[in-house]
Design a protein around this nucleic acid. Structure first.
Lengths: 111, 111
DNA sequence: TCAACATATTCGCTTATCCGGATATGTTGA
DNA sequence: TCAACATATCCGGATAAGCGAATATGTTGA
């Protein structure tokens, strides 16, 4: 298999991956997996300062991972592409496996 | 759908995603998608300083995304879990779609 | 044992990212 | 129009991530 990619494309690819490299943003994306929500709703479940959530939403917006829609005073955020959840789930599955493998290692060392 | 995750797990998840948030590491992972390669082979295709590649490989190693095997003077690197390619491909597909959507926007604005 | 090659690490520096608090902007109903 | 609420941005300062150059470690064959 060939994977020739320009430095430029690689950078942009990495930039997109950067968006999911933060715990708050991962939580936001999973929250939005349930459907569109406005900022106050997100604040409720995440329990973080409003400025913090807004800043992270901006990162997701800038990278086009979410889209927004204003409804009166509220701004609803929505996933722009649900495949982002697939990517996150794969990463989580890999992570789970790594953890359980480490766990096994520790177990077998202890006995 | 429920996604209750402890802050701790979210951090670790993010930490794993962090690994793919760099163009050099993405390139390395795709290179290793072809099969195990030693550092000099990776240097050839990536055309980067040896220290740089070694540092990035260390990041991947620390997060258990790659495993190593020494063969004489060479250290072979190999993907620990090929699903990482699936995750990367999804991110790339999302990125491609974003780009083409932007492109369409520009086109329709110009006309 | 030692020169030569393969790989890893350290150092000093620059740049990026994250945060909380304060403040600004946008929107509504009275 | 203005108070009240929703959201976004700005400002420092702290922490982390990136880099190149130099150096250290590991391995081999002579």
């Amino acid at each position: 298999m060939e994977h020739p990619q320009s430095q430029e494309l690689l950078s942009m690819h990495a930039n997109l991956c950067q968006a999911i490299a933060d715990p708050t943003r991962i939580a936001l994306l999973y929250e939005l997996g349930d459907g569109p929500k406005h900022v106050s709703q997100l604040l409720e479940t995440l329990d973080l300062p409003q400025a913090t959530v807004s800043r992270h939403l901006k990162v997701l917006r800038e990278r086009s991972l979410v889209k927004t829609q204003r409804d009166g005073p509220f701004v609803y955020y929505e996933l722009a592409d649900r495949r982002i959840l697939d990517a996150l789930n794969i990463m989580r599955a890999i992570h789970t496996d790594i953890l359980s493998r480490h766990h096994q290692l520790i177990q077998s060392t202890e006995e």
